[in-house]
Design a binder for these strands. Sequence first.
DNA 1: GTTTATACTGTAAATATATACAGTATTGGG
DNA 2: CCCAATACTGTATATATTTACAGTATAAAC
Lengths: 214, 214
Amino acid sequence: MREKPLTKRQEEILIFISDHIASVGFPPTRSELSKHFGFRSPNAAESHLRALQQKGVIRIEAGRSRGLTLTALSRPSLPPSNTARTPLPLVGRVAAGSPILAQENIEHEYRVDPSLFSFRPHYLLRVEGNSMRDAGILDGDLLAVHRTPEAQNGQVVVARLDDEVTVKRFKRKGHLVSLLPENPDFQPIKVDLRHQELVIEGLGVGIVRPQLDN
Amino acid sequence: MREKPLTKRQEEILIFISDHIASVGFPPTRSELSKHFGFRSPNAAESHLRALQQKGVIRIEAGRSRGLTLTALSRPSLPPSNTARTPLPLVGRVAAGSPILAQENIEHEYRVDPSLFSFRPHYLLRVEGNSMRDAGILDGDLLAVHRTPEAQNGQVVVARLDDEVTVKRFKRKGHLVSLLPENPDFQPIKVDLRHQELVIEGLGVGIVRPQLDN
DNA sequence: GTTTATACTGTAAATATATACAGTATTGGG
DNA sequence: CCCAATACTGTATATATTTACAGTATAAAC
């Protein structure tokens, strides 16, 4: 029961620290924090750390380099996949009408270090077909997906259209969305948001190819 | 399996480091090591660390405070407390003249469920260049490599030629080996085994793409 | 409408830390 | 016996890191 909740930025900082410990093996310095977040002053990081300490989610050991530790309080605010301990579900074929992460869609769970990916993945989705071939995403690849309803132009998205789940490159102009394949053999899908419902299930943040077919 | 076993003292040092990480939350400094063991010189600790690194049980990140991490090799000599799966080393640029898995080439280690791949990987190799683009292997991808000197025609191999490490498709006819790119912009490499030495470092068994560039 | 907290830039300095160099002593192996 | 590896002392220094001080700007809180 924390008195004050973390701000969005503070949460980002906390998650970075947690990831750094999990993947690199020790906590980051102020300067490393600054570099990652683009701060031009190490004091920006320092202030954030003070705030996080004030709110009880981290401890700072004075005078010790990298003297940051997470407290018990920090756990709840961290996303569930923050450590390598929580497995990534592999979603195979998505049954019509069911949420992507519904039990029936989950084939298996794999333990994958989330820090492997530049963006935190929430699940793996088996890609079907070769519509994204020229982006290096092949049939059978596992797409690491970050769950979010927001997408920017040019990003690879997992979208749901008429209960079909598809992986395409996202492009939006006003209320017109194009789902672009990366393969000349396929046609772009055009959606008018006024007449058709389009749900962005998440962003593609990486690929795992379980085998190289020879 | 280690060539040279740790000395008793080295084992003590290793266990202290491991305990420190587990209980304090980050690795110790040379001075903290010295204080604990009663060394009057930080160089005593430094030497021990070098020895441990030499024997492959820890990694030292140059210039970073507390930049110590345990490697997969350290596990057998540690008490069974924190048993995690053995991590996959990520090999970045391979320095000329050094074995692929030499300490200096290992950028990081990731815990990745080996069952994710159809064939058991031994390490990840960062792919440079786009010579395998049409096989869906892009610049920056991490190739999961199974260490073996045997290759069959058509397999994706990690080969070493003139101290250069390269990823290509393997084709052999008698004493003539072709290393085939999968990109028309690149030329096949032909090697006559009677005149040139070619070492097969391993087989590509999968891909991890840490980010989708948009 | 003046605080208060957040979110930073910019500079500077104390000090923590890594690490080189020069030694000493001991041990076990060839 | 001599060499190489181990296990340290002692000193020094470059640099990594923490951390203080002085600001600016913005949004929410009172």
